[in-house]
Design a protein around this nucleic acid. Structure first.
Length: 260
DNA sequence: TTACGCCTGGAG
DNA sequence: CTCCAGGCGTAA
């Protein structure tokens, strides 16, 4: 699930569920989450009203009326499920926030890698994030890439470069820009740089467009190259290739993403 | 820069 | 059974 577009639509769900409501209970159901959100901390949250839900890159911040922040990160596959107090709990519910009027928001995450940390009033989380894709400029990206050695793909996964990109959207953005994932980051020319900025914005916009109609679970694979190894490139028909870069799969088209 | 741990499920 | 998974912090 969760890269920027997915986290944004999740944040909308959380916002609708909790903003303006007072938390009546907060429970971490899995030891892994209890480490970062122990019962004593959860008790401190109870009685507070949620005034705002912010998204920064892939992070979600529940801002409470005393200025405290609950920082949630889905990691690999977290998602929100909205229900009512007393409803049967989802099998992989890891944390539940129940409001005083009975609305319940559950963080569902089979792998239990999600994190939720409490930040006391006056000590907000410090995030090291680059610009959101919407605010990305060629000047910024060019400046950052000029100081990087190594292939472009892992650089784009660095949240300090651009906030919110993950393995899927980086592959999609590079495909749109026709840039080879192994291309030396600082060797990108102006034309490729501009194409890459456009590609990032377009890939993310495409993700957003998909969010609205993704709940009906129709089409499996709306991606251009991600998870399409061996299938023909939509642009040139060349079979999509998969390589490993810094331990993770990268999908690309060897036909139209050339110059490594 | 790479490798591993964190966790668990699903696919082959 | 083995391998893979949309992330990320820390260690080597």
């Amino acid at each position: 699930m969760p890269e920027l577009p997915e986290v944004e639509s999740a944040a909308v769900i959380a916002r609708r569920a909790l903003v303006g409501r007072t938390l009546a209970s907060v429970v971490a159901h899995h030891p892994s989450q209890r480490r970062s959100l122990p019962a004593r901390v959860a008790r401190r949250i109870v009685g507070r009203r949620v005034v705002r839900v912010e998204r920064h890159g892939k992070h979600q911040h529940f801002v409470l009326d005393d200025g405290a922040v609950i920082a949630v990160h889905f990691r690999m596959n977290g998602d929100w499920e909205v229900g009512r107090a007393g409803d049967p709990l989802a099998r992989f519910a890891r944390i539940t926030f129940t409001a005083s009027d009975g609305v319940r928001l559950s963080l569902v995450d089979s792998r239990a890698l999600c994190t939720a940390a409490y930040h006391a009033p006056g000590a907000p989380p410090v995030l090291a994030l680059g610009p959101e894709p919407d605010d990305l400029t060629t000047a910024w990206l060019g400046g950052v890439l000029a100081r990087r050695r190594g292939p472009i793909k892992p650089v784009l996964l660095d949240q300090r470069v651009v906030a919110g990109l993950g393995n899927i959207y980086v592959a999609e953005a590079l495909w749109r820009a026709r840039v080879h994932p192994a291309r030396e980051a600082r060797a990108l020319g102006d034309v490729q740089l501009r194409a890459l900025v456009r590609g990032i914005k377009a890939a993310i916009a495409d993700g957003f467009a998909r969010q609205g109609r993704s709940r009906d679970g129709s089409r499996a694979h709306p991606f251009k190259v991600y998870d399409r190894e061996g299938r023909p490139c939509a642009r040139c028909g060349t079979p999509v290739a998969r390589v490993t870069q810094s331990g993770r799969s990268t999908y690309y088209c060897p036909g139209c993403q050339r110059t490594a």
